[in-house]
Design a protein around this nucleic acid. Structure first.
Lengths: 187, 187
DNA sequence: ATAATATCTAAACAATCGTTTAGTTTTGTT
DNA sequence: AACAAAACTAAACGATTGTTTAGATATTAT
């Protein structure tokens, strides 16, 4: 009993996410989003509530989109090798002449670390905790590692991943490769 | 033949720098700066030109201020141990119940990685290159290391420093400590 | 065909952004 | 004492921020 949407929600969300990914939350204006998404501001507000709502949905869209990177990590059975491959998958764009945008989650984590936006901070914290849990599980696959070592190495890898994501926006493929290789050299 | 300034330039610069450090460039407004620095907008503009000028001077002020961290690194004679100490010095606030603001240079590096602000990007790039040169020099103190290894480890440490600075804004002292120890374990 | 309703466009909203202007006050020199 | 120069206050600048409103348009169920 009503008019049809002239846009596809997934498609415009993908475009919004790309823009947020490239510029961050604060720098991306509704005007830019309107232009990039190709739909009117009113349509954005009816579909996503407000800018924060659009961003949160963009984050979720991002998580689904990078499933191809997480799936092998979660499903893998090779322990620490899976994590290393995950590191490489995370920065694939650095080796493919694609624009370097790092990791949207880490970018957001950095941008909002001093912010008081509760919803977004919660999303970030839970995401990081999930990742740490996965790392721990992978590290525990090695029976020679006691629990203390596992936790220590998980902390190490979590921060390494964090740093890699940040660095991936500015560093060269060679620097990235050196970093990943050194990181996993003696684990 | 003129009126005296009622403020001390170093003092207001310190306050501006603190604010930029906490919030980043984009999030810090002239209104906030006016309030924090305790002087009028007009005075800010006469002294620093514009917001970007104020930020660039804040960056320089920051570099002078963290001299106590860099001096031991540059003057040190213990090679890699100096770098490790430098890492610890960089995140001292994490161990001292002080507010966690990470490293202003790295925060800025991240915030401006996709920006087109040439002046600020130049400052960041030169800063990172300087740091890498110092790392290389330190690593070369070990005569057992060939040049290829030196470069590889320098890349590794530069990214590690980058990641540490980002992570220092959100992680716990234990996580930070685990990270630093693991980073230097097998160099 | 008509009524109902959701979606569109386009303009306007108040608030804030970085920046500038106008006018006053203070200081130092002659 | 009078003038000149710099620093102050406070208000306003136009542009842009995120958000909302008003009205036209399109679609569907009856």
């Amino acid at each position: 009993m009503a008019r049809k949407k002239e846009y596809n929600k997934e498609e415009v969300l993908e475009k919004a996410m790309q823009l947020f990914w490239r510029n961050g939350y604060e720098t991306t204006s509704m005007q830019m989003l309107e232009k990039e998404m190709g739909i009117n501001k009113f349509s954005i507000y009816s579909a996503f509530g407000n800018k924060q709502g659009l961003f949160l949905e963009s984050l979720n869209h991002y998580k689904l989109r990078i499933n191809s990177i997480f799936e092998p990590l979660i499903q893998g059975t090779k322990g620490i090798e899976d994590i290393k491959q995950f590191f490489y998958d995370s920065v694939r764009s650095n080796f493919n002449d694609e624009p370097l945008k790092g990791c949207l989650v880490t970018n957001t984590y950095n941008e909002f670390s001093e912010s008081e936006d509760v919803l977004i901070k919660e999303q970030m914290t839970s995401f990081m905790e999930d990742l740490k849990a996965i790392f721990i599980e992978k590290l525990q696959m090695d029976p020679n590692k006691d629990q203390e070592t596992v936790l220590k190495q998980a902390n190490y890898l979590l921060l390494a991943k964090h740093g890699l994501a940040a660095a991936a926006r500015v560093n060269t493929p060679k620097e990235i490769k050196d970093y990943i290789e050194m990181t996993f050299k003696n684990l």
